[in-house]
Nucleic acid binder design. Structure first.
Lengths: 231, 231, 231, 231
DNA sequence: TATGAATGAGATTTCATTCAT
DNA sequence: GATGAATGAAATCTCATTCAT
């Protein structure tokens, strides 16, 4: 146990060091030598635990994505509605990236471009996670929460693309201090997307889209301001 | 003239080769040797035209971004309203990436992460382009087209992030054939976003947000079907 | 200890090989590849020990000059008079160069012209050594051994320039065999210089230069020792 | 003639540029490209005139040494005595180096170490010049001006070595301004060497070094001129 | 298990030199 | 005669990886 614990500690230290250095310099510019220095062991020791430099790279999401997914699963089990589940899933993404910016940078900039990574169990986990997002959207469409004609893949791309963009941009900013809290953007963001795909009856209010003539009649009835055109 | 033309041809062939290979293998894994082979010249010739490997990398967007921006500027000069301008700008992005997938991959995966690229004229052009998007959004907020309380930076991240995500994902798909036409997704995508940030009175029709009780009354009055399709 | 000894041996073998090859071909024409072949190791091993080719160059005098200076210091501590000290210092130069002709060639032809070498600890040692020579000369002037009006820098240039010239010339001779022993030239050389800068009263007594007949007369008159040639 | 003059001008400009750049950077670090830029012509043009980079190097002393030797020869024809001729020869060296410091650096640092240069006509001229120095010394020994037992080669090494050392050292000084005029050191220098190798009877009369009281006595006895100051 | 030491393989870059025009 | 363009050949240096201890 002590032995195992010690080993586990050493392995983790290597992974932590690799995460930081891969994220900061990019995989090809990072060197095993620097990682070993940061991890406080010899280069050869790294090769004891991980067969190649790329194996070490893939070991990072292996560990982290599993941790994250378990937690998300637990949370999801309490939520029913499409919107709620969707929000929970996105919150999990954002929290993971927010709490571990190096991991965000690594996944979004190094790993996603790597074709070999796509054959990895870690990537399977990521895919599963993305698939649950898709399922949410489909569920929302099916149950009338979301419009029938919206393209679930497009919605997912919007959701993931936006979050990724926000974190990539933050990673690229010169000054790491004063980086805004992306978590706070999540609800406004979700509201915009949902606002764009919700059916009229969704949520507490109703959204009606009417032709002009209808609207005029309606206006008379309800004394609402007339619909003005833009440009 | 003929002489110059020949030179220009050679330089262009090098840039084309570099674009393809950088996009496919990533900058650090690409070798000058392979590029020279593909361009049909010697390695030394590449160094004759471009001082370093990185200079060659930066020469690619230098050339392409300038071409693209001029065209966009021309188109923009004909459009007034915020939504129209915004759509034109996004269409320019999508067309550029769609017509040149290698360039899309290069910019989105290799260049955006490169801190030295951020000091480049080509990146300045890209920033300018992104700024115009921001201006559109602000204009829309100012003139009442978009809701007052929406965060322009967030909107922009949604617009750019989604488009980038779509093209990155397409680049990563194993089979380049049967890749969907992302241009076709643009209008649905824009409508969702705009749908999420438009004020009630925007567009040709009228959008009414009603409390439930009102809606029920309204439904009875107009016998309109509930939750209709978007625009 | 054994481990350290092995390493030390390898490092020394590299330095020895570098010394020979740098001296024979000149620094820029020498290649790491050839040095590694001569040292019996790989090129990469050389870079393991010495960061760059130039670092390897500078490591040579670093090692040798330290060894030499310590010994000279010991010897100097036993000698008082300006002439004796000066002779000891020059002898140290000559012995060092004589015993290690490659080192002589390297220092005199490769290193002295290198502006970066001038910022090196090894060069500081060399400067210190040259400074002690200057001190000797000044001491001799101050205590009346040498003429008051002689320029110490000129004297030093004579001393060093001559020695350097002798060794450079020898290095350039085609046949390394039958190279004369420069040590044997040292005393005649020193005597000429001292003969040129000594005051009349220097040394034990009076030095008279007379024609023989005068000298005889003079001897009788003064009972002075006979007109001698310079000692 | 005009054509030839133009060509000559171009060739000279190349040689001048090469001289400056070889002297400043050293032969191996100098590039044909930089020389062509400084000479205001293309690289290929240099190869029109000079077959290889080394040929260009050797063309420099070819031109300069011939010019210098002719002048020296003219001057020597007016001088008889060994000391005078020797002084004239050394003055020629010093003036040449003083008036053309780049040439000094080139010859002393780049060319003297080059074994192929030793087979060159330019080097033959330099050897001839050095041989005349030797002849002077031998003449001085033969006619009793210099001591019988002095080694002519050693004397020559002293003369040349000192001058070379002075110019090399000056070349290495960081600040080119405020460089002392080495010509002024020549006479003191020569006097020291001659003072060290002259026979007693050399020069105008007898040189006595005496203590004052002895000198006074002696003066009375011999009516010799009073004990004079040094040289 | 851990590592110091060593290296094979390969990448970028430089430049003297050539040649068609 | 002059040169712009092109390149062969080579050199320095880096690093992932191996292996004896």
């Amino acid at each position: 146990m002590a032995e195992n614990g010690k080993t586990r500690g050493r392995k983790d230290r290597i992974i932590d060091a690799a995460l930081r250095i891969f994220a900061e310099k990019g995989f090809p510019n990072a060197t095993i030598s620097e990682i070993s220095r940061e991890a406080g062991c010899s280069e050869a020791t790294i090769y004891e635990y991980f067969g190649t430099k790329e194996d070490l790279l893939f070991a990072i999401p292996e560990k982290i994505s599993n941790e994250s997914i378990e937690e998300t699963d637990r949370a999801l089990s309490y939520i029913r509605g499409a919107e709620g589940r969707l929000r929970a899933l996105l919150l999990a993404y954002v929290r993971l990236y927010q709490s571990n910016p190096h991991y965000a940078a690594l996944v979004l900039l190094q790993l996603m471009n790597n074709k070999r990574f796509r054959k990895t169990p870690a990537h399977a986990a990521i895919r599963r996670s993305a698939h649950r997002l898709l399922d949410c959207i489909r569920q929302g469409i099916a149950d009338g929460t979301f419009k029938k004609d919206c393209n679930p893949y497009l919605i997912r791309s919007m959701l993931l693309g936006t979050i990724e963009h926000l974190f990539i941009q933050r990673h690229m900013q010169a000054e790491p201090q004063r980086q805004s809290d992306i978590t706070e953007l999540l609800d406004p963001f979700i509201e915009i997307v949902l606002g764009g795909i919700r059916t009229a009856s969704a949520d507490k209010g109703v959204t009606l889209y009417l032709r002009r003539e209808d609207a005029r009649t309606l206006g008379e009835l309800l004394r609402a301001p007339e619909g003005q055109t833009q440009d």
